[in-house]
Amino acid sequence: METFISDYGWIIWLALILVFVTVEMVTLELTFFMIALGSLGGLLSGLLNAPWWLQLIIAVGVSLLLLLAIRPPLLRALKRGGDPSKTNVDALLGLGGRVVLSITETGGQVQLDNGETWTARLSPATPSRTVEPGETITVAEIDGATAIVVPTERTSS
């Protein structure tokens, strides 16, 4: 068995590297990439005719070193500078708009300032009334495909 590992250990290392890189492509958290690099260290030591147990120690050592010393700063660098702009539902909250079809507690329609037209209903926190077309509103929340809106205070000029 020892001669088999000595003669064909490089195939085992290549297979492990392939498996770890494949798993890393699915997880994208750099853990398996660091283990793959450790396995590469084991492969290189095997190509330099190191005994199998030394190859294993080198692979584990390099993997641990990379996981503990290199991975955390890499993750911080990747997460820094993310896009600060709001998207999806978060981008709609607080957005203004105008009423297209009268809004009551049961329904209506608004055109938001971003150009989208949404079905809408009044927020339960607002007094019951009908909001007429042309009045301005603000989106308080999104419930499925319905914007829950609050009428904007009318300012007297």
Results as ranks from 00 to 15, higher is better:
140 A>D: 00
124 P>R: 14
131 V>D: 14
120 A>C: 06
116 E>H: 03
120 A>L: 08
134 G>R: 00
124 P>V: 09
136 T>N: 09
139 V>D: 09
141 E>Q: 07
108 G>D: 00
140 A>L: 07
104 T>N: 14
135 E>G: 09
109 Q>S: 14
115 G>C: 01
121 R>F: 04
120 A>I: 09
139 V>G: 08
120 A>K: 11
109 Q>F: 13
117 T>A: 08
128 S>G: 12
138 T>K: 12
140 A>E: 02
107 G>W: 03
105 E>T: 11
140 A>R: 01
107 G>C: 04
140 A>I: 04
111 Q>P: 05
109 Q>P: 10
121 R>Y: 01
110 V>D: 15
111 Q>L: 11
118 W>G: 01
110 V>T: 11
123 S>F: 06
120 A>M: 10
107 G>M: 03
141 E>G: 10
110 V>F: 10
118 W>K: 10
134 G>L: 00
105 E>V: 09
131 V>E: 11
106 T>W: 03
117 T>S: 13
136 T>H: 14
132 E>Q: 13
106 T>Q: 11
112 L>S: 03
129 R>G: 11
129 R>E: 15
128 S>D: 13
137 I>L: 01
107 G>F: 03
104 T>V: 00
120 A>S: 13
114 N>Q: 04
134 G>W: 01
127 P>Y: 11
134 G>S: 03
113 D>T: 01
141 E>P: 04
127 P>M: 11
116 E>L: 15
124 P>I: 08
138 T>D: 00
109 Q>Y: 03
123 S>E: 12
108 G>M: 01
106 T>M: 02
105 E>D: 07
128 S>N: 13
118 W>C: 04
106 T>V: 02
118 W>I: 06
136 T>Y: 06
141 E>S: 13
123 S>D: 15
113 D>W: 00
117 T>I: 14
107 G>D: 03
104 T>E: 06
111 Q>G: 07
113 D>K: 00
121 R>T: 06
116 E>D: 08
110 V>Q: 15
107 G>N: 05
118 W>D: 00
